[in-house]
Amino acid sequence: MRCLAIVLACLVWAVPAAAQTLAENNARLFDEIAEARGVSPAQLDRIRAIFAASPVLGQGNPAITRHAMTRAECNARAGGNALAAYVNRRFERICGAKFMAPLYDPATQRPEDATVCIDQFEYPNIPCAYPVVWVKAKEAAEICAAEGKRLCDAHEWEGACQGALTPPDYRFDLARGLSASAAVNRMRAAHNAKYEGTARWSYGPAFRRGVCAQNSEKSPTCPGGGWKNCGSNTYPAGSFAGCASPLKVYDLNGNVAEHMNLPLAPDQMASAGSTTLGVTEMKGSWFIWDKYRAHPDWCRWRAPYWHGDRVMSPRSHENYHLGFRCCKTSGQTPGSQEF
């Protein structure tokens, strides 16, 4: 029955996106999350409720989205079975979940020394699934919490990309007494200046075209933005095997940009157990980067305060090329972080 379910899911996903409604796509997505990753019925109920509260949350507007690669093509690249190709039993033992990678510093640690893990793929964290987009930072944090995970802090995403998780070095001293926007921009400038000389990408020391999921097309009607005008013309997650960091995390460059938590004070760090959280930080690049590079996208680069808000604000930003992935602290259990 399990094999039949996977075959049927692949057949369903072969139907052109325009033939499906967002609700139908999401219903199949929830089934696949349960099938591929073993997310529990109770967790799925919480995830469904978050999706149901949004008119746009999902894998893109099916009326206009034209994905750059089919899921069948992605599976073929993975030898015919992406779920099997990306299984890593060692990582599963360390992280206690499928398709997560331990974050550590290879210079001084082993994977087993990791105290935090990160999703290997953009949410829904399933090989060859299309990323979830049109998600607010608040919704991303809530979805992660529903699975017993959390939104990553900026330095964790950067460590996953760089290939070494090092201690956080947020310049909280530069943020004191300033507005959020002024604090972010002052902290960002100091951070980028510190790391620019050692800039690298997830796949290597120099920017390269053709390596990641970055050669898609923007919808012709999209320049003005909006749900009705912009297709989420993404690739399936993990479709470029070479677009991986040294820690085996995929699509950090390319496919979708990703929500992250940027703390402005020590008590806003998700990695320290905070549910207050800081402000939004959008990491990485997106699916047309081989054609149009809107900003730098090296691993430790931090963005200006674009569409800035508190992570948990109901006004936090959403758009057609913005997704997320989750982190998990060792010992974190389902429901251990509630909002």
Score class of each variant (00 low, 15 high):
Met1Asp: 13
Cys3Ile: 11
Leu4Met: 09
Leu4His: 09
Leu8Thr: 02
Leu11His: 13
Val12Trp: 05
Ala17Asp: 04
Ala19Met: 12
Gln20Arg: 15
Gln20Val: 02
Leu22Val: 00
Asn25Ser: 09
Ala27Gln: 05
Phe30Cys: 00
Asp31Met: 13
Ala36Cys: 10
Gly38Ala: 08
Gly38Asn: 10
Val39Ser: 03
Val39Pro: 02
Asp45Trp: 13
Ile50Pro: 06
Ile50Arg: 06
Ala52Asn: 13
Ala53Trp: 13
Ser54Tyr: 14
Ser54Lys: 15
Leu57Glu: 05
Gln59Pro: 07
Pro62Met: 05
Ala68Pro: 06
Thr70Glu: 05
Thr70His: 14
Glu73His: 15
Glu73Gly: 14
Glu73Val: 14
Gly79Lys: 13
Gly80Thr: 14
Asn81Gln: 14
Ala82Pro: 08
Leu83Glu: 10
Leu83Ala: 09
Ala85Arg: 13
Tyr86Gly: 02
Arg90Met: 06
Cys95Val: 12
Gly96His: 10
Gly96Leu: 06
Lys98Glu: 05
Ala101Gly: 07
Leu103Thr: 14
Pro106Trp: 14
Gln109Lys: 10
Arg110Phe: 12
Pro111His: 11
Asp113Leu: 03
Thr115Gln: 11
Ile118Phe: 01
Ile118Pro: 00
Ile118Lys: 00
Phe121Arg: 00
Phe121Thr: 06
Asn125Met: 08
Val133Thr: 09
Val135Thr: 09
Lys138His: 11
Ala145Val: 02
His155Met: 07
Trp157Arg: 08
Gly159Gln: 02
Ala160Trp: 01
Pro168Ala: 09
Tyr170Thr: 02
Ala180Thr: 06
Ala182Pro: 03
Ala183Gly: 03
Ala189Val: 06
Asn192Ile: 00
Lys194Gln: 10
Lys194Asp: 01
Glu196Lys: 12
Gly197Met: 08
Trp201Tyr: 15
Ala206Phe: 15
Phe207Ile: 10
Val211Arg: 06
Cys212Asp: 03
Ala213Ile: 03
Glu217Met: 11
Glu217Trp: 14
Ser219Tyr: 02
Lys228Arg: 13
Asn233Val: 14
Thr234Glu: 09
Tyr235Arg: 00
Tyr235Ile: 02
Ala237Gln: 03
Gly242Gln: 07
Val249Asp: 00
Val249Pro: 00
Val249Gly: 00
Tyr250Glu: 04
Asp251Phe: 01
Asn253Ala: 12
Glu258Gln: 14
Met260Leu: 15
Ala265Gln: 13
Asp267Ser: 10
Asp267Glu: 12
Ala270Ser: 15
Ser271Arg: 12
Gly273Lys: 10
Thr275Asn: 12
Thr276Leu: 12
Trp286Thr: 02
Trp289His: 05
Lys291Trp: 10
Pro296Phe: 10
Pro296Lys: 03
Asp297Ile: 07
Ala303Gly: 06
Trp306Gly: 00
His307Tyr: 15
Gly308Asn: 09
Asp309Ala: 14
Ser313Val: 09
Ser316Leu: 06
Tyr320Gly: 07
Tyr320Thr: 07
Leu322Tyr: 08
Gly323Arg: 01
Cys327Glu: 00
Lys328Leu: 02
Lys328Glu: 01
Thr329Glu: 08
Gln332Trp: 07
Thr333His: 12
Pro334Gly: 04
Pro334Ser: 08
Ser336Phe: 10
Gln337Ile: 11
Glu338Ile: 15
